[in-house]
């Protein structure tokens, strides 16, 4: 009796394991199940925002803690003729355009941008894949631009447009105004005391230190203030959100 039952148990466990795998893949393809899974993003966002002060700083390190090599990921060179031409002259002609729901939409040259107040911070870059690198970033706090160009009351998100394309689509990212006004959110143009290398997003990249690496948009050409993310790309707020199931909130 026991032996038969035991054999039955083992057989059904093996069938169960096989069924579990194909079952999981079927669930993974089900839109309603995906919606249920993605509800964790709302929970993560709500709880992580509630746990700390909204202006709480991410850890900052000393120069002794720097990664010997700061790994580059994603696009390592936009390689378009326009980008190559700008890179050839040290990005002297690069323009940052502030568009959308600003009281005073305007453009900044790299020279104008470098004459604004600067912030230098040594922070840890956490990639969604699992690796981390510590680097020293210098750039203009995003708040400075927001104060100069002044957001309209209806603005809720800031969209960062980039010069690089991945799989034929332009890269973009977006953040809300809590991160937009956070003191460590900067448009960086220097890494480890040197002009930002092309592989790391020259001449301008976003640093939004309380989120993962894919939020740190590189090769920034413009910031668009919007009331909703609906009309941008496919409406999910970023390149990786549009092409795969990455979450807009990347605090974990």
């Amino acid at each position: 009796m026991t032996i038969i039952s035991r054999r039955k148990l083992i057989t059904s466990a093996a069938i169960g394991a096989g069924g579990l795998l194909s079952g999981c893949d079927a669930l993974n393809r089900n839109p309603a199940f995906q919606d249920m899974l993605s509800s964790a993003e709302t929970a993560n966002f709500t709880v992580q925002r509630a746990l700390g002060n909204r202006m709480q700083l991410a850890s900052e390190y000393s120069s002794a803690d720097l990664s010997p090599v700061f790994r580059a990921n994603g696009t390592r060179d936009p390689a378009t003729p326009a980008y190559a031409a700008s890179a050839a002259q040290g990005f002297a002609d690069w323009q940052l355009r502030l568009t959308g729901l600003f009281e005073k939409p305007q453009m900044f040259s790299m020279a104008a941008l470098q004459s604004l107040p600067q912030r230098t911070q040594i922070t840890r870059h956490d990639c969604v894949e699992g690796w981390s690198a510590i680097g020293q970033w210098t750039g203009v706090p995003l708040k400075i631009f927001l104060d100069i160009a002044r957001l309209q009351d209806s603005a809720r998100f800031l969209v960062f447009h980039c010069a690089d394309r991945l799989g034929g689509r332009p890269y973009y990212e977006s953040i809300d105004l809590v991160d937009g006004f956070h003191p460590q959110t900067i448009l960086a143009h220097r890494l480890n005391g040197e002009p930002l290398p092309v592989a790391n997003g020259a001449p301008l990249r976003l640093r939004v230190e309380r989120q993962l690496g894919y939020k740190q948009a590189k090769y920034i050409t413009g910031i668009q203030a919007v009331a909703s993310l609906d009309g941008i790309g496919e409406g999910k707020g970023g390149y990786w959100q549009d092409v795969a199931n990455y979450e807009w909130y990347a605090g974990i």
Binding site: D25, Q34, L37, A40, W240
Partner: peptide, 19 residues
């Protein structure tokens, strides 16, 4: 999970069941 490589889907499953 899933049986083919998808970091984005793996994360969704992970965080939902983590809660």
């Amino acid at each position: 999970i899933p049986s083919s490589y998808s970091l984005a889907d793996g994360r969704r499953w992970h965080f939902f069941f983590a809660w």
